[in-house]
């Protein structure tokens, strides 16, 4: 735990000391602001963050997560500091978990800033707080899964752009896989639908928390973190 804490602190320091991270957060919040206004600025608009988080999860997490994680291993590989890190008395999983947690804290900070919109809704109307809570829980789980994918992509290349593109592609596949299921039928269609990130998030966004959806996001996150650990470890024998 001590090692994880140390690496986490270092990564968070890098994030929060970098103007780029703030600029990315600023762009994220500007876009969420546009999505929020679009979702409520219409006749019969429901006083909820449902529209905001549905659009944000689709458009923003697909883009922001790879941007947040692309640096984490790719830059270390490029600078040659990954060898130093891996020969230090820390385990591979500690490095991966700490970097994952750092990116998650960054994403969660950005997501929680959007509670400002929920506060605006509460001021002007009477939103249902249960679905607001569940939607944010789902959004954070969704984000955690996409960050794990981005982290794996970051280990695959020393070029940050390549890592971001690979991460973006991975997340896109898991986001849109249910669209493929629409043109199929039977068991294959159902399995593909069960694989979709957006389909699992939908229930959270409506106000329903289902243990199957929680398990899906946690398992997806665990699988990609495991793959990341194996990918980092493979540098020792490749």
């Amino acid at each position: 735990m001590r090692n994880i804490r140390a690496i986490l602190r270092k990564e968070l320091g890098t994030y929060f000391a970098s103007p780029m991270a703030y600029i990315m957060a600023g762009v994220f919040l500007a876009l969420t602001g546009v999505f929020f206004v679009n979702s409520v600025d219409q006749p019969f608009a429901e006083a909820s963050v449902r529209g905001l988080l549905a659009t944000s999860s689709f458009f923003l997490l697909t883009l922001v997560s790879p941007l947040l994680t692309m640096r984490l291993f790719a830059e270390e590989q490029k600078l040659g500091t990954l060898e130093l890190l891996l020969t230090a008395p820390v385990r591979d999983y500690e490095v991966v978990v700490a970097k994952f947690l750092a990116s998650f804290v960054m994403l969660a900070s950005m997501a929680l800033a959007t509670l400002f919109y929920a506060a605006l809704l509460a001021y002007y109307a009477d939103p249902d707080l249960g679905p607001t809570f569940s939607a944010y829980v789902g959004f954070l789980l969704y984000g955690a899964a996409t960050l794990a994918m981005g982290l794996l992509a970051s280990t695959l290349s020393s070029n940050q752009i390549v890592a971001a593109v690979v991460g973006f592609g991975l997340i896109l596949v898991f986001t849109l896989v249910d669209q493929v299921s629409n043109i199929l039928s039977g068991t294959v269609a159902r399995v593909l639908e069960r694989l979709s990130l957006s389909a699992h998030f939908d229930a959270f966004n409506r106000g329903v928390i289902d243990t199957a959806d929680i398990a899906y996001f946690l398992i997806l996150m665990a699988v990609f973190l495991f793959l990341t650990i194996r990918s980092v470890e493979s540098r020792r024998w490749r």
Binding site: G33, F36, F116, Y124
Partner: peptide, 23 residues
């Protein structure tokens, strides 16, 4: 609502970016 949503949060974060850059 539009003004608060479009500008207040992003402007605050950009201000933080400026502080980070200055430091």
């Amino acid at each position: 609502l539009r003004a608060l949503s479009w500008f207040v949060l992003p402007a605050g974060v950009v201000l933080l970016a400026a502080v980070a850059w200055w430091r």
